[in-house]
């Protein structure tokens, strides 16, 4: 893989909106809060200026305006950074979007600690928890550019609120062009027999690397990209965990309330097996380069390997 193959999931946002609009989706509109260049909604604005609304630095207004547009038959996509696009506007997402089940697609970028030097104030590691607890909301976490493109398309095709978690970090391709994605469906990326690694977002390529390392130790790891955190593909996860008997979850998010929690809930009720959650351990982020931060917060493939060893020792 060359450096140029690596792309951030955010790059799929504006580009896919343009594709959809060019395919005749006249209902699609986009809103941003003074971050259109960073989120890439500027690409949509350049082609469809009359359907793009920059509200200035006012995320609460942006989300409720999107709800008003949705009540008028439009399909609004909202940008901003994940920390502001979900947290700053949480009550608006709850009461003006999810409660009335309106078709607003909340797709902020710069989620997670891979935001890097901006520091803890800008590193959103609670968004999956905040979004998945809301009735009517669906939560998608794409692992590469191809998956992000699919997630934006699923959001456009799904009635009601959808959250798509997008990032700034460039990621290697996990999927071939044209790979099929569905709401509520996980992707089994590698078959294994000894342990299941359930990952999402930037952690998928790290989970695949961890599976390679584990293979060198004689451990056969299955790798599942959760992709759809809500609805979660419980059947695929329980089937895999039932076969391997051990699970490690891997997410660039707090271990509290995120994908690992969702998997733990499913396993606890459906097929309890020893598990461990790799994620940020109830802490805020800090300034640093993305890879330094992944090391600092325990989100590298060696950390996944170590967690897998600990889980296997409990069997």
């Amino acid at each position: 893989m060359t450096v140029s193959d690596r792309r951030a999931t955010r790059e799929a946002f504006g580009a896919t909106l343009v594709e959809l609009a060019n395919e005749g989706r006249d209902d699609i509109v986009a809103l941003d809060a003074d971050l259109a260049t960073s989120t890439t909604t500027a690409k949509f604005a350049a082609v469809f200026p009359e359907r793009f609304f920059d509200v200035g630095i006012a995320e609460q207004n942006m989300i409720a305006m999107a709800a008003g547009l949705a009540s008028g038959g439009k399909t609004p996509f909202t940008g901003s950074f994940a920390v502001f696009g979900t947290g700053r506007a949480y009550d608006q997402i709850r009461n003006s979007v999810c409660y009335p089940d309106l078709s607003v697609k909340v797709c902020p970028t710069h989620a997670g600690i891979t935001v890097g030097p901006d520091g803890g104030s800008h590193q959103m590691i609670e968004d999956i928890a905040l979004m998945r607890v809301l009735p009517n909301m669906r939560v998608l976490v794409p692992a590469d550019f191809t998956a992000a493109r699919a997630a934006i398309r699923i959001a456009a095709e799904t009635a009601g609120p959808v959250y798509v978690r997008l990032g700034r970090a460039a990621l290697g391709p996990v999927y071939a062009d044209g790979a099929g994605f569905e709401l509520g469906r996980a992707q089994v990326l590698r078959r294994g027999t000894d342990i299941t690694l359930v990952a999402c977002g930037v952690m998928v390529e790290r989970a695949l690397a961890a599976a390679d390392a584990l293979a060198g130790e004689g451990v056969s790891a299955e790798v599942v990209d959760a992709f759809s955190i809500k609805p979660l593909d419980v059947a695929t996860i329980l089937e895999s965990a039932g076969r391997t008997g051990a699970v490690v979850t891997c997410e660039e998010h707090s271990v509290i309330g995120g994908m690992g929690s969702a998997v733990a809930e499913a396993l606890g009720e459906g097929a309890p097996v020893p598990m461990e959650r790799v994620g940020v351990k109830d802490a805020f982020g800090t300034s640093g380069e993305p890879e330094q931060l992944m090391e600092r917060y325990g989100l590298t493939s060696p950390h996944i390997v170590a967690a897998a060893r600990r889980v296997l020792q409990r069997l």
């Binding site: 509109v29 009359e50 359907r51 609304f53 609460q60 207004n61 989300i63 409720a64 305006m65 999107a66 709800a67 008003g68 547009l69 949705a70 009540s71 008028g72 038959g73 439009k74 609004p76 009550d91 608006q92 709850r94 009461n95 003006s96 409660y99 009335p100 089940d101």
Partner: peptide, 30 residues
């Protein structure tokens, strides 16, 4: 709005209605 016809949008958390109305007005303009 999901329960009673005639209710255009759901409200209750104060401060959000004027934003909703802006969105509705923009949708009509589009």
């Amino acid at each position: 709005m999901r329960k009673l016809p005639g209710v255009e949008v759901s409200t209750g958390s104060l401060g959000q209605g004027l934003s909703l109305a802006c969105g509705m007005a923009l949708a009509l303009r589009l």
